[in-house]
Amino acid sequence: MSATRRCFLRMAGSAAAAAATGAALGCASPAAATRRWAMAIDVRKCLELDGCRACIDACHQAHNVPAIPDRAHEVKWIWKEPFERTFAIEDPDTVTAALRGREVLVFCNHCDNPPCVRVCPTQATWKRDDGVVAIDEHRCIGCRYCVAACPYGSRSFNFVDPRPFLVHTTSEYPTRTRGVVEKCNLCEERLAKGQPPACVRACPGGAMLFGDLRDPDSEIRKTLAARYSIRRKPELGTRPQVYYVI
């Protein structure tokens, strides 16, 4: 259903309240839906910045992601995982030395065919027209089915109230309440303002490429066309939209 139409329907639903006082609710045109956002990570560039956490910090600060010390209750949107685990490499010794034992960035793949969206019983998570796999934290019932469904471990559940664990709190973005699931939203709030994701902007080495796959002239398309890239667990058919340029 297009956003315009949904907006109209909802208008009709609230007509009684609105009509009572004559307040008319304005309805702006929706964001263009002709894009397909994707991300490409230049692994080598990233690895050059050994120990760099700029993207992680930028993201977690921008989105009020708590720093929970208890590993069991951790909430993270973007973080680093050993290369071999990320790509399920059986024998680390056969990996090129540049990658062996190193960590790569992982976060939500914003899959084209996201299992998490398929399983959600309330449509609290869904794939937007521009490819962003979004979560409506207001609707999430905390069943954690999506967490079980995600083959990448990208989703976090708020086992505890996250607020005491916030280092910095920004009022630009809400925190979450306990009992809901969250993950990377591809900075959709920034995209709406025409800004790139916070991590991309924060990366000092330009290792993260963000762009529209439908735009043949976009840098990401050119890069992916020019260089070899891999994706996580492509065999599962989820069609991740985060590409690792080797």
């Binding site: 449509q123 999430c140 019932i141 089915y145 559940f157 708020n158 306990r178 809901v180 699931v181």
Partner: peptide, 20 residues
Amino acid sequence: MGQPSRVLNVLRYPTPWSMM
């Protein structure tokens, strides 16, 4: 449920593609 007070959302937003 993490948010038990919202469980009725399952009825309010019936989602036939979810096994739940």
